[in-house]
């Protein structure tokens, strides 16, 4: 009996003590958190890709609330309705905080403007007064200010994009100047003579720095060339940031838009010598285009995706097959699967 009592009292007392210590510590070391952070966090995709420029979705959610970050910076898997929800969550607070945010916005706007002015090297005292007057006014009419703000945000909602590699020079097409072994990343390859073993200095090096940063396994290296799976890409932009040759670009999602898979700005003859898939700047795509949405710039075509209807004439006509579409990429992947 004594043994039993002893055990129970020991467990009970230590449990009580633990609870007490935790309770007291919780009070002493209390960190104030905002429930809106949690609510906004639920609106975000939660794959912590860092495409918004913050350390992760939690970090971004707290930045929206505490540092008045724009709610439309998430590039991955967030729709207009999520952005609307976030704005509603932010508006759901009381009048006082609304005014505070409006003031903060006005302040940051003023800072932006003053920064612009510094750049243009114009100092105008009256402008400052003007702005402070405007700020006072905006504090009074914070409601209308917020409407303006929401309009401004509505305009800047980014279109969903998908990344693609602007190079088609795999080891069959692009010539190499030499062979090298033991290179693990594109950054290392860039230090080699001639900026890597490939004869073309503009193209994909194929050492997979982008593969390592991709959180969604959307990129793979096939025959010495990075290939991005458009269905898996969430447009976080990490590959674009890390690519040392800046060969990864974004294009609007949804349509089977053609992609130009060459970045070489040299003249036709020089390109033809080093890569069978390179753009020779012939301009046949310009002439064949049904909507005149292609222009030639630095010996490379550029597609205006606003006008393009994805008719596919340009990729049929291209003599070096350096224009592909998503289907083309898919057949590319299919071929790859059969190869293995």
């Amino acid at each position: 009996m004594e043994m039993f009592l002893m055990a129970v009292s020991f467990a009970g007392i230590s449990g009580l003590l633990a609870g007490l210590i935790l309770g007291v510590a919780g009070k002493i070391f209390y960190v104030k958190t905002d429930e809106r952070v949690e609510m906004i966090r639920n609106e975000l995709p939660g794959n912590n890709c860092g495409g918004c420029g913050y350390a992760g979705c939690d970090d971004y959610a707290s930045a929206i609330v505490e540092k008045s970050a724009r709610p439309d910076m998430c590039t991955a898997g967030i729709g207009p309705e999520n952005i609307e929800n976030i704005k509603n969550i932010l508006k759901g607070k009381n009048e006082n905080m609304l005014a505070e945010k409006a003031r903060y916005e006005a302040q940051t706007m003023r800072e932006d403007q003053s920064m612009c002015k510094d750049q243009s090297m114009r100092e105008d005292q009256s402008m400052y007064e003007d702005q402070s007057m405007r700020e006072d006014q905006s504090m009074r009419e914070d409601q209308s200010m917020c409407e303006d703000q929401s309009k401004r945000e509505a305009r800047t909602i980014p279109e969903k994009q998908v990344m693609y590699v602007k190079c088609g020079g795999n080891c069959d097409a692009a010539k190499s100047k030499y062979k090298c072994y033991g290179i693990n990343s594109c950054e290392e390859a860039l230090l080699l003579p001639n900026k890597g073993p490939k004869a073309c200095k503009f193209g994909c090096l194929g050492y997979g720095s982008c593969v390592k940063v991709c959180e969604n396994d959307a990129i793979s290296i096939y025959k010495g060339l990075a290939v991005i799976d458009g269905d898996k890409c969430i447009n976080c932009g990490k590959c674009r940031q890390i690519c040392p040759t800046h060969v990864i670009h974004g294009r609007p999602f949804l349509k089977n838009f053609p992609e130009i898979v060459c970045s070489n700005t040299d003249k036709g003859k020089g390109v033809k010598e080093i890569c069978s898939r390179g753009c020779i700047g012939c301009g046949i795509c310009l002439k064949s285009c049904s909507t005149q949405c292609i222009i030639l710039k630095d010996n490379l075509p550029e597609i205006d995706y606003g006008k393009c209807t994805a008719c596919g004439l340009c990729l049929e006509k291209c003599p070096s097959k350096c224009i592909v579409d998503k289907n083309g990429l898919l057949t590319y992947n299919l071929r790859r699967a059969n190869d293995i």
Binding site: A11, S14, G15, A18, I21, L22, A25, G26, F29
Partner: peptide
């Protein structure tokens, strides 16, 4: 009990 409390406490601190 001790470990759970400790981890919680460490987290709070």
């Amino acid at each position: 009990l001790l470990i759970a409390t400790l981890v919680q406490l460490v987290e709070i601190i």
